[in-house]
Amino acid sequence: MAELETRELEYFVAVAEELHFGRAATRLAIAQPALSKAVRRLESRLGTTLLHRSSRQVALTPAGEALLTHGRHALNAVGAAAEKARRAGDRQGRLRLVIKAGGDANLLSGILAAYARRPDARQVDVLFGGATDRADHVRDGRADAALLYVPFDDTTGLHHETLAVEGRVAILPPGHRLASRPEITLADLAQEALPRWKGVRWTGAPEGRPGPEVEDGAVLLDMIRLGRTVAVLPRSLALPARPGLVYRPVADAARSALVVAWAQDDRRPLVASFVAAAVEAAEEAEEADGVVSGAAGRGPAAPPETAGRP
């Protein structure tokens, strides 16, 4: 059976993604003839055609599409293994936490303080991810832990502990037909267009009526102000209220959970200590201001059949 080398996969994936040998060669910083020869050699070893070539275009064959899908996973796995090995050998033991800007339910300061009090505490590097990629940071080794919102973020391959559970708030443009109501329901939103988050298939729209594609919170708020969409977000992501927008609680929206997540195969004391500190900080916040968290907030997270995405 033919064996693939990491470099061969890198070359093929670059060509498959660019569908152009010249651009792929530039991306890889190698000569185009060498790249073309490498791909042909790979096809010969596999005994199948991966690319249809013509003077005008490059297209993937079914075999090429399959190799692109699995090749990406393989390269990601190799990269994750190398990163995790490097991190495991890091004697300084710095911990990397990835969060969404503003996506900590006001718990981050308390979490960092609780962790700093522990005798085994190490430096924490806080990384800021996008609306949809924070779990990937943990899966591929770029981060040791993440603050995620369940059920919105994909926690496949991760363990997590619930820190806070909260209701959801609808954000509406001024003059919207629902803006005068003290609270609204999901049924009220059934005909509204809700945003599609880039890279995520599920939109959360109650009737499957997706609105414009957005990449981050700033774009989302602009789209709402323009009347192109409305959004249903966890309360901690929706508040404090921004000028020129209307905020209303959604009475029957399933509650969402803020969780601290880490890789299922990561059993390092460094990570376990940080998770314990995060849970401790959430419990202290619950006692201080009534936020539903800790043991009171644990259990099944809200199902993804309702509305919104952070």
Rank of each mutant, 00 (worst) to 15 (best):
T156R: 14
G157C: 06
G157T: 09
L158T: 00
L158G: 10
E161G: 01
E161Y: 02
A164K: 06
V165T: 12
G167P: 09
G167T: 12
V169T: 15
A170I: 04
I171D: 10
P174R: 09
G175D: 10
H176E: 04
S180R: 15
R181N: 06
I184R: 14
L186E: 07
A187R: 13
L189K: 11
A190F: 12
Q191L: 09
E192T: 09
E192M: 12
P195T: 12
R196W: 00
G199Q: 05
G199E: 00
G199M: 08
W202M: 08
W202R: 15
T203L: 05
E207H: 04
R209L: 15
P210S: 10
P212W: 13
V214M: 11
V214P: 00
E215D: 00
E215C: 07
D216C: 02
G217D: 09
A218Y: 12
V219D: 12
V219P: 00
L220E: 00
L220Q: 09
M223A: 15
L226S: 14
T229V: 13
T229E: 07
T229I: 08
V230W: 13
L233K: 01
P234V: 12
P234A: 14
P234R: 03
P234L: 10
L239P: 06
A241Y: 04
R242H: 14
P243M: 02
G244C: 07
L245N: 01
P249K: 04
P249V: 01
A251D: 08
A253Y: 02
A253R: 05
